Amino acid sequence: MYCDRCGLNFLPKQSVCTRCKKVATRYWFQLMSLVTLLVALASNTVLGIFLLPRLMEAPHGRLLFRIWYWLDQNAALYGWVPLAGGLLAWDYFIWKEARPKVKGWLTRKLLTFSLAAGVAPMIPWWIPAGQPPGEFLSMISRYQGLPAMLAWSVVLVVTIILCIDPESRDYLLGHGRTLSVVSTGMLVLVLAMTLLGWSLTY
């Protein structure tokens, strides 16, 4: 990759240019996009806990906010599935040639384990080879949110492992422009829905 200021060619493993000691613009794009995405998700979580229950009882726009609440609930339970599948597909098709053996093996095993643990309760009882142990099923029935929390934790750990290293982060996030559009769009959508909710309530 090339430095935006002095034009020096340096490796993605290096966070700063060795000549002018400046951080590449794409890294700022990546950082600010991740921060914006985190703010949007945190805002949506706070709204789902404190504001949405009141908005669902409002006289106007009740259906809209019920749909929003339903989407939040299902994203919290099953949103890790497309993320884990997308990371596995990215690992196989894009990162395949440049991935380190140990890190690539670890991330694949973690994501495969999370997907297997999430799919195991849906396996029919009449398939004895695929049926999970009885202790596992009793634990799931006792703590219904536990599998989702474990799966989200695995996806979060894998994402942190990939984003700590500059080279794998560069492969995953690219220039950061697409992620910045997605994160900004999510933040604008959450703010627009919040303003709409306040206007309908008060």
Rank of each mutant, 00 (worst) to 15 (best):
W28G: 02
M193P: 00
V119K: 01
M139K: 12
T184I: 08
T107E: 11
L77M: 10
P121A: 13
Y143S: 10
G48H: 05
F65S: 01
M193K: 07
T25G: 13
G185T: 03
L162Q: 12
M149K: 07
P121V: 07
S15D: 14
I49E: 14
F113A: 14
I127E: 05
L64C: 09
N9I: 11
L38D: 06
T36S: 03
R177A: 07
K109A: 12
W90M: 12
A76M: 09
C163W: 12
L173Y: 13
D165W: 09
P128H: 05
R26K: 15
A24E: 14
P124W: 04
W80G: 06
L41N: 05
T184C: 04
S180I: 06
L71V: 10
L11E: 06
P82F: 01
G48F: 07
V81I: 15
Q144A: 10
G134D: 13
K22Q: 14
Q14I: 06
W198F: 13
K22Y: 12
R54N: 09
L37E: 11
F65W: 04
Q14L: 15
P59E: 04
W125T: 15
G61E: 01
T178S: 06
K21N: 13
S114Y: 00
M122C: 09
I67K: 04
R142N: 08
L196D: 06
W152Q: 13
L200R: 10
M122G: 03
R62I: 03
I127P: 00
C163V: 07
K101C: 08
V23N: 14
R108W: 10
V16K: 11
L83K: 02
W70Y: 13
S183D: 01
M56C: 10
L87K: 01
S114H: 02
M1I: 07
I67M: 11
L34P: 00
P59Y: 04
L111W: 02
W105Y: 08
G118M: 06
I127F: 10
P12I: 01
H60R: 15
D165Q: 11
F50V: 07
T184K: 02
E97A: 11
L34Y: 00
L47S: 01
M32C: 15
L47E: 02
K22V: 13
I164Y: 09
K103Y: 08
R108S: 10
T45R: 14
K13Y: 07
D165T: 10
D72R: 15
W70K: 11
G7R: 09
L195Q: 09
S168T: 14
L55E: 00
Y202A: 05
L111N: 06
F113L: 12
L200C: 04
L156N: 05
N74Q: 11
A192F: 09
V119T: 08
R142L: 13
Y202D: 03
Y143G: 00
R62V: 04
K21V: 08
L83G: 04
V190R: 05
L162Y: 04
T107F: 07
P53A: 05
L187Q: 01
S141C: 01
W28I: 01
R177Y: 08
L87I: 02
W90N: 14
S33Q: 04
K21Y: 09
Q30P: 00
A116P: 06
W70L: 15
V46W: 08
T18V: 12
Y143H: 12
C163D: 07
F10V: 06
G85Y: 05
L111F: 01
E135G: 11
S138P: 01
W125Q: 15
